[in-house]
Design a protein around this nucleic acid. Structure first.
Lengths: 108, 108
DNA sequence: TATATTACTGCATCACTGTGCAATAACGCA
DNA sequence: TGCGTTATTGCACAGTGATGCAGTAATATA
């Protein structure tokens, strides 16, 4: 297995593996949004969001365009949503399994 | 968007987002392997591999069983391979696009 | 029981990531 | 040009992650 390829895959997944960045992705799910719209929908400082947007764009997940003083972002790689869907399904099935195991425990 | 859910998704993706752990997953693709087989196929210290295996198991991605002094690991959630397939496809299409852009550059 | 094999844990270290404040850059408009 | 708005970057700090060595645990076998 080519180490360079593993590195690229890990970098891409790292870009996804952060709660605030995931929140941004879900927020952009329905189409492009201006940074000025994204910011108030998040808890963190605008500078923090800006950096997360940069990271997502550098990973090739988002794209951006400037319009006047505003910058609009959108999801360039819609297949990341497929990935998130699979992750959700795995988490749900895992939690179901845990529930099943908990049910088998003695009630003492 | 529920912050707890974002956290779980990010944790799961973080477990994947590391080159050595990806290498382990590819190594386990064809079925279970003993830690004693995994170790020599990796460059790092056995203790490092052990920790990565723990992390993958805690994320619910791997499962393990002890057989004598040996411990066997296998991929419990085969759908992670779907995720890696999508990542690869995205990386390939991104590199193609870069090539296309490079071709448009002036040759000077 | 003593010894060897296999796997894991404790600890120290180094690097990287995420964060917030302050400063700066990019733009539109008076 | 000067001012206000929007977005990004510089910097310092705290927290987390990956690593290797040394030591320990779990098991098999002599």
């Amino acid at each position: 297995m080519d180490p360079k390829k593993l590195e690229l895959e890990a970098d891409f997944l790292s870009a996804l593996a952060q709660p605030t960045r995931l929140k941004i992705l879900y927020y952009l799910k329905d189409g492009e949004k201006c940074a000025c719209e994204i910011n108030p929908s998040m808890k963190e400082d605008a500078s923090v969001i800006s950096r997360h947007l940069v990271k997502l764009r550098e990973a090739g997940i988002l794209e951006s365009r400037r319009e006047g003083a505003s910058v609009y972002y959108w999801i360039k790689e819609l297949r990341v949503l497929e990935i998130l869907k699979i992750v959700d399904e795995l988490l749900i099935s895992a939690s179901r399994e845990n529930a099943r195991i908990v049910e088998m425990l003695p009630l003492a």
